[in-house]
Design a protein around this nucleic acid. Structure first.
Lengths: 161, 161
DNA sequence: GCGAGATCCATACCAAAGGATGAGATCCGG
DNA sequence: CCGGATCTCATCCTTTGGTATGGATCTCGC
């Protein structure tokens, strides 16, 4: 009875990315609260009666910008982690000309990072049999007989980084 | 899973990073000017007489944060380029530091060209058992558990072309 | 000379990879 | 709606890879 609903077919990292995103949002909220506190402190202590509103605005702008930089770096680091395994396609000409499908390409990329078939299966949420199936057709299309040769040829063709 | 500590060498990427940084700074200045313009526009048009200063502050904070996110992503993308582009001109020093012998290195190179153990044995005029023996100690020294990982790590360390 | 390391080889065992075949499910363009 | 492509999975089988253990030479430096 093969009726598994095929979760996360395109990448197994969705959960990780989401949790990282949520963490960042929480931290952003805390930082925002701290920022408000600092502003209020400044407001009632020093500036607001003596200096113009423009100065106050400037402080807000600078602090908010810094906060934004931090948030931006946080968010982008997520993408970087995700992008290590599955994403970039350098030479999709070769991929098309060889008739390599999207899923086969994912298996190829994961394998090229030194993972065993079982690890590939776990990462892509498929069975070991499916990994072997993809690799078999992949070896045929690449005209190789082992994973090491496949990685060499795929790199030479620009299919993988 | 981060298989290797890919140290980016300090070669031709420094210029690129600096020019990218300068571009970002210029764009940041332009964006800041635009931001000021927008704020002034809002100020003299709608809000400032009717709504409280807090609303104005909030607008500034939101816009500045968005700007900061953009700047942060810009700056961090530079780092990403540098990190993704390793050009190892290195090193035969690694061979010594890892204690890899001459014969092991020959087996490693042959294996890295996609040959099976039997093929390595034939090419080097030794028996299959010897190849396995060399590879076993090689895997130990490289701290890997498969030939694919070994090739990856050896290439990253620069001991393989 | 002697020990250490390197090279070579063997045997046995288990795990992993690869090949072959078949088949159900889904999707999509004609 | 059908057929082809894709993705999925299973099972059986053979080959290869990797580990462990042990032993035989050989060289080289102390």
């Amino acid at each position: 009875m093969p009726l598994l609903p095929n979760f996360a077919p395109m990448n197994g990292t969705a959960e990780f990315r989401r949790s990282g995103f949520q963490t960042t949002v929480v931290l952003y909220g805390l930082a925002l609260a701290a920022l408000v506190f600092i502003l209020k402190y400044i407001e009632y202590r020093f500036l607001i009666r003596d200096l113009s509103v423009e100065v106050y605005i400037a402080v807000v702008a600078v602090l908010s910008t810094a906060l934004g930089v931090w948030v931006g770096s946080k968010l982008l680091r997520q993408k970087r982690v995700v992008a290590v395994e599955p994403q970039p396609v350098l030479n999709e000409e070769a991929v098309r000309s060889l008739g390599i499908s999207a899923r086969e390409l994912e298996v190829l990329r994961t394998m090229a990072n030194g993972h065993s078939n079982q690890e590939i299966a776990d990462k892509l949420f498929i069975s070991l049999a499916t990994v072997k199936s993809h690799l078999s057709s992949l070896f045929g299309k690449l005209e190789v007989r082992s994973r090491t040769q496949a990685v060499l040829k795929a790199k030479a063709a620009g299919i993988i980084p």
